[in-house]
Design a protein around this nucleic acid. Structure first.
Length: 421
RNA sequence: GGAGAGGUGUCCGAGUGGCUUAAGGAGCACGCUUGGAAAGCGUGUGUGCUUGUGAAGGUACCGUGGGUUCAAAUCCCACCCUCUCCGCCA
């Protein structure tokens, strides 16, 4: 959510920036509604003020046992007027709020203008494509051939887009979770959090998942709870409706959670393997920081996520998303994409975003400086990393001619120094 | 799940229909005092919306949503949450 005053004062900028994200914003309608709404508010408050005066007068006269029937009648007349304006005003507010909540975040000045992923800007590349003297197999075939990825039985148990890993592949994922958590806590100074995996609707509104993206969520109907689509939701909401001290910032959290997504509207995309699942694991990084530091913190957060891929010796690139590819809530996003031999291309494995005050305003997270000045802080998050895709990347990049998967150096110690899974 | 108690500002906490403009305290900011500090004293200090060039006003907000009343933090109804005890449970 943007600041209403900011929209009013920068109406052209907002319209242009929003257009660069591919979202239409009817600025004339906004101005018209805003004007009408403010007029009605002034009207209703004038009458309320009169009514309050009369109520006080009645109080005094009643104590003195004076006649108050005239005043009562006046007050009732005011109430009727108020009721009438209130109906108009309620409708205006609903329409106005729909517009405000539908406006995406304003992109940062460093974000390139563009329509889709073709206009994204390559920032840097790490490592090289692995060379194979045989035709590399897709990870789902490697998993099945080795007997530790059983997608058929996962479908029997739960349905399409679920996976079941066993033995050393299951252990690989567990060791990766541990490697990520250890790296981010010990080396990068994040605090480990084990949050709830079910959250209420207020939390989801705070992060912007509701009401706009309800289709993507799994709901436990009887209890009015939702399965987390990402740890970003519980982590951001740790400080919802709170006032933090400037000297507490930045706050850095890292959490492992499973993530649940209905993947509505993604039919036919990435149907093979474990790239797009209804349930997947993820280690998430989240920061609360001062507004003036947030873009510096975004660079650091992206580096923290990259560090995992470096440790695993995986070839990747970092891409700055163009305006049209930047998500609704984000002001600036870097995607980290890992090399996948089977598709002969890169695959998103982490998305690191600076939301500036967009989420903080929705979730009412403020900070106070030494002079008691209060303002919304900035929030950032990024995957560090998505586990399923990391596992798939290791399988495909570390495969050998005999169909086995080599274990990345850094994890061999955990596997009794074995070379293969 | 059952019984009871409770939810008030940054925090603690008073407040059972109009003299509340939410008492009092703590914290914080500024000032006085001091060689310097502490203590002490004084002043200020909620949020949203809105009017106004500004100074300064108006309005709403006491867990959430409804209701009663000329008037609600206060009375009524529903729901959410916390605590204590009981039951169930890994």
């Amino acid at each position: 959510m943007l600041d209403i005053n900011y929209i009013r004062e920068n109406i052209e900028t907002v319209r242009d920036k929003v257009a660069s994200k591919g979202v239409a914003f009817d600025s004339d309608n906004f101005i018209k509604l805003d004007k009408e709404r403010r007029f009605q508010i002034t009207e209703i408050e004038k009458i309320k003020s009169e009514k309050n005066k009369i109520a006080k007068e009645i109080g005094v006269k009643a104590r003195n046992k004076e006649d108050i029937s005239d005043l009562k009648a006046q007050s009732i007349a005011f109430s009727e007027k108020i009721e009438k304006i209130n109906k108009t005003l309620e409708n205006l507010e609903i329409e106005f709020n729909d517009i405000i909540l539908g406006i995406p975040n304003i992109i940062h000045e460093s974000v390139p203008i563009g329509k889709n992923e073709n206009d994204n800007l390559l920032i840097r590349t790490y490592g090289d494509k692995p060379e194979f003297d045989f035709k590399p197999l897709p990870h789902w075939e490697l998993g099945e051939n080795n007997g530790f990825l059983d997608i058929k039985r996962a479908t029997k148990i739960s349905g399409a887009r679920f996976s079941l890993s066993t033995g050393t592949l299951a252990k690989l994922e567990r060791e990766l979770i541990n490697l990520m958590l250890e790296t981010h806590t010990v080396e990068n100074g994040y605090k480990e959090v084990l949050p709830p995996f079910l959250v209420n609707d207020t939390s989801l509104i705070g992060t912007g998942n509701l009401p706009k993206f309800k289709e993507d969520l799994y709901k436990v109907e009887d209890n009015n709870l939702y399965l987390v689509p990402t740890a970003e939701v519980p982590l951001t909401n740790i400080h919802r409706d709170e006032l933090l001290n400037e000297d507490e910032l930045p706050i850095k959290y890292v959490a492992y959670t499973p993530c649940f997504r209905s993947e509505a509207g993604s039919h036919g995309k990435d149907i093979r393997g474990i790239i797009r699942q209804h349930q997947f694991n993820k280690v998430e990084l989240l920061k609360f920081c001062l507004p003036e530091n947030s873009h510096k913190e975004l660079e650091a957060l992206t580096n923290n996520a990259e560090q995992i891929l470096k440790k695993l010796g995986l070839h990747y690139r970092v891409v700055l998303l163009c305006s049209g590819d930047t998500s609704f809530s984000s002001a600036k996003t870097y995607d980290i994409e890992v090399w996948m031999p089977e598709r002969n291309g890169f695959l998103e494995i982490s998305s690191c975003s600076n939301f500036e005050s967009f989420q903080a305003r929705r979730a009412r997270i403020k900070y106070k400086n030494k002079n008691n000045k209060k303002d919304f802080l900035h929030t950032l998050n990024g995957s560090g990393l998505a586990l399923g895709r990391t596992v798939a990347a290791i399988m495909e990049n570390y495969q050998s001619a005999d169909g086995k998967i080599r274990i990345p150096e850094i994890l061999r110690e955990k596997f009794n120094n074995k070379k293969y899974l």
